[in-house]
Amino acid sequence: MRQTSSNEAIQKLGIRHPIIQGPFGGGLSTERLTAAVSNLGGLGSYGAYQLPPDEIGRVADRIRAQTDKPFALNLWVSDHDAGGDALSPEDFERFYRLFEPYYQELGVEKPQPPERYHHRFEDQVEALLEARPPVFSFVFGVPPAAVLAECRRRGILTSGAATTLAEAEALDAAGVDLIVATGFEAGGHRPSFLARAEDSLMGTLALTPLVADRVKAPVIAAGGLAEGRGIRAVLTLGAQAAQLGTAFLACEESGTTDAHRELLFSDRARNTTLTRAFTGRLARGMRNRWTEEMASRLGELPPFPIQSWFLGKLKPAAIRAGRTDLVSLWAGQATPNLRHRTVPALMASLLEELSAP
């Protein structure tokens, strides 16, 4: 197997291969997964946006205990949508009525309103700066200039996600070190921040060369990539690395459930949809009862992250009952081509395909 050719992104990141593991939120990221990818020459990533600030440093320490290679911690710059930072008692009751039948079905008691529905990005990023991960990756916006300057001072590389050319140019103008051009084929959330996600649906093969031709920062392509041939395609189009999400989510080192993992390898994976039904923000996953029953009620749902909070209270009971009809099943459009269930098997296959003549 020949060594993957080096380029600016690989050199900056200090990795051996142009393979980035996409970060996952909601408990789907694990230190084990992050370290496994990094130890095999890619860049492992950990989605930290749902972590309380005081846990971020501990996660970084646990990753460092398993690898001495570079890794990324990921945060969401925009931590709530309009109206998503607080609810009046009346609005809480109104929104709860939408969820009440499902709470009763699963035997879950009515939750009490929390003090906060989300962790503040400002508090999380302060903790991240203290943790000093090799890479700070982020979605849903551009961090304040002071944060980016502090990353440079501390030697932390920055990597921001763009779903349009305009977003990529905004990241580049801010001096971000790497730009992830993410197409609508990707599983999970669409991290748009300059326009509605529904109005920012560009495919990876169109977006990648548009961005690569117009920004100074090296470009990482993401969305619909699950095999070596996909990585080779985006490298040809101007990307210097590829970010894979669902392919790593399907590995046993990730934090997803066995039921979700089995569905990723089933015919159900052929049917994905973009929906706001799970969190209030547009995201791609497999169709199920929840996406179908909420399709006609999207206008009634609370904003992000309140929608995610209400549904999150149902998730543990649904998982215990083996109910995949009421939980998110994130999956990208390339999911039917998944073949590997461990990080070593996946990385070996990707590298073999990359080095083929």
Rank of each mutant, 00 (worst) to 15 (best):
A195L: 08
I19L: 15
A356C: 15
I56C: 09
T236V: 15
R152Q: 15
A86E: 12
S200P: 04
W330I: 13
G332V: 05
W76Q: 13
S200A: 15
F184G: 02
E8A: 15
T272E: 00
A86G: 12
A334R: 03
A35R: 01
C151Q: 04
F184K: 09
F92P: 03
P344Y: 08
D267Q: 14
L346C: 05
A86H: 13
V135H: 05
R214H: 13
M294H: 04
A9T: 04
A48T: 04
L249F: 06
A9F: 03
I19P: 00
K313A: 05
Y103K: 06
I306W: 01
I179P: 04
K12G: 08
E31N: 09
L237K: 00
D85G: 10
I306R: 03
R214M: 06
S88W: 10
G27V: 05
L350I: 10
F265H: 02
Q66I: 00
A9R: 00
C251V: 04
Q240R: 03
F310N: 03
H118S: 05
G299L: 04
Y102L: 07
P134A: 11
K315G: 05
R94H: 13
Q66Y: 04
R320T: 13
Y96H: 08
G299N: 08
L235D: 01
A197C: 11
P114A: 11
T291S: 11
A321N: 10
D54E: 15
R97L: 11
Q11G: 03
T273M: 12
P113R: 10
D267W: 10
Q243N: 12
G188W: 10
H260A: 09
A250Y: 10
A356T: 15
C151Y: 12
E115D: 09
E262R: 14
Y49M: 11
A170P: 07
D199E: 15
A170G: 13
V135G: 03
L73Q: 05
S355D: 08
M286L: 15
G44Q: 06
L129V: 12
A250S: 10
K315M: 07
L171I: 00
A36D: 06
F248W: 02
Q240T: 03
R32E: 14
Q307A: 11
E8S: 13
R62M: 13
M1A: 14
G22T: 06
R62V: 03
Q112K: 14
R339F: 09
L33C: 11
P111R: 08
F95A: 07
A36G: 13
G285H: 01
F140C: 02
Q243G: 12
Q104N: 11
A269K: 01
L128S: 02
N288Y: 06
G47Q: 10
F184Y: 12
A348L: 08
V176H: 02
I63W: 00
G22N: 09
L73C: 06
A72E: 07
H189V: 13
L354Q: 01
G107N: 03
L87M: 14
Q50M: 15
S254P: 02
I156G: 00
E353A: 01
D54V: 09
Y46Q: 04
E292W: 14
D61I: 09
E253K: 00
T208M: 06
L51W: 07
P18D: 07
T273S: 10
V108L: 09
R297Y: 12
T246F: 05
A250G: 12
R154Y: 09
W290R: 01
N288G: 12
I231Q: 01
E300C: 14
R132F: 11
K313R: 13
G187S: 14
